Simulated assay, not measured.
Amino acid sequence: MPSPASSDPVPVPRPHAPGRLVTPGLVDQHCHGYGGTDFATAGPEAVRTALAALAGRGVTRVVASVPTMPASEMLAAVRRLAPLVRSGDLAGIHLEGPFLSPARCGAHPPADLLAPGTGASRALVHALLEAGAQGGTDPGSGGGNAITAMTYAPELDGAAGLEAALLAAGVSPSPGHTDATADQFDDALDRLAGAPGPPAVTHLFNAMAGFHHRRPGPVPGALRAAAGGLLRLELIADGRHVDPAVVRDVIALVPDAVCVVSDASAATGAAPGRHRLGRVDLDSAPGSAPRLAASGTLASGSVSLDRALGLLLEWGVARDAAVRSVTATPARGLPPGRRDSGWVVWDAPGVPGDVVLPAGHPLARGR
């Protein structure tokens, strides 16, 4: 592989490992949990244990995703997770809700969804941003708000005000879980044009209107903006959320704009059975993706990010583009001080790394 570009997470020479694939540590910008731990509800030590397990698989930078829950519980989750961002354990916090389309809420409880334009919602946003900002300049935090992104439906009343509040706090508005028309989505992209870095669409294709030649929906506008460098696109590459051919084609179309994410939950990497995603129960069975226990709705990703990288290569995605989609491109959504992620030496793509080297480690200097 060529040496990483300046935007890659680790700006040091890579290790000398002939015959092996060497990558920057993988960066997962949308991860709800792993190995039985639900980030939104677990205590700090359980979160650290799950992060250590992911690091052992080469996933060395993780943004903890908090699903839609009652306002008080989302606020409590931010207050519980923000110290882990300040300490450097987490790369950030992603709020997936509560301002989502009721028609496209997926696994998120409809009863807990909110409209962004109300006084109560504005007060909640203020409290969430304040909780994320506390101690944000501590040395371990890498600067900036602990909250890195919020998923929202841009067609909802009050969405423009929400976008402005997030941008003012240095938090990326992430369109998703949306029933927006093409025009509504394009209007939102115009409002986001002044964002300091390209926002990311939350898991493109999933929980949004599909493309139709008379009702194009959000997808064409998202692809167009990504091609222009104005947007990044999340894709879940587990073979169940998006057809592998579609994943391959989107990465070929916009190779510098795709962030492959795990969307993993407590059920991912855990024994089959009952697990939690915020306030809802998930069921997982061998060989299938986790689903809502109550309805059978697809509820989270089925593989961790290292396995997703292996699948990309199995599906014929160019190696450099595949590696970029799980390292440099998602890292662009983090404050610069949170991008260092070490190096991973792989025997073969898709299996746990033999060696995970922290940035600046003597062995990472090569020879």
Score class of each variant (00 low, 15 high):
Glu155Phe: 08
Pro110Met: 05
Gly158Cys: 03
Thr268Ser: 13
Leu233Ser: 08
Gly161Arg: 02
Pro216Trp: 08
Glu163Gly: 12
Gly35Ala: 12
Ala127Tyr: 06
Asp190Gln: 13
Ala53Val: 06
Gly140Ser: 03
Pro352Asp: 15
Ser304Cys: 14
Pro18Met: 08
Ala76Trp: 08
Val250Trp: 03
Pro272Leu: 05
Ala318Ser: 08
Leu51Ile: 13
Gly58Pro: 13
Gly229Phe: 08
Thr148Phe: 08
Val27Lys: 01
Gly342Tyr: 06
Arg324His: 14
His108Leu: 06
Arg279Trp: 01
Ala264Asp: 05
Ala50Lys: 09
Val345Ser: 13
Leu21Thr: 05
His94Lys: 10
Arg319Asp: 01
Cys31Ile: 00
Pro175Ser: 10
Leu100His: 01
Ala182His: 14
Pro15Lys: 11
Gly316Arg: 04
His32Asn: 11
Ser3Pro: 11
Phe205Ala: 01
Met1Gly: 15
Asp340Gln: 12
Ala52His: 08
Leu166Ala: 09
Ala123Arg: 14
Leu277Lys: 06
Ala77Tyr: 00
Pro173Tyr: 04
Ala252Thr: 10
Val355Met: 09
Pro173Asp: 01
His126Thr: 14
Ser87His: 09
Thr202Tyr: 04
Gly140Pro: 03
Ala149Val: 04
Val10Lys: 00
Ala252Ser: 13
Arg307Trp: 00
Val345Asp: 10
Arg86Ile: 12
Arg367Asn: 09
Pro70Tyr: 00
Leu100Trp: 01
Ala82Cys: 07
Ala159Lys: 00
Ser65Val: 05
Ser3Leu: 07
Ala115His: 15
Ser304Ala: 15
Thr178His: 11
Gly296Met: 12
Pro199Ala: 06
Asp89Tyr: 09
Asp347Gly: 11
Ser341Lys: 03
Ser172Gly: 07
Arg338Met: 12
Ser325Trp: 01
Ile251Lys: 13
Arg48Glu: 05
Cys31Val: 01
Val356Asp: 02
Arg279Gln: 12
Gly221Phe: 02
Ala195His: 11
Phe205Gln: 02
Val125Arg: 02
Ser6Arg: 15
Gly144Phe: 03
Phe185Gln: 04
Gly296His: 14
Ala285His: 15
His177Asp: 00
Pro358Trp: 07
Ser300Ile: 03
Ala91Gly: 14
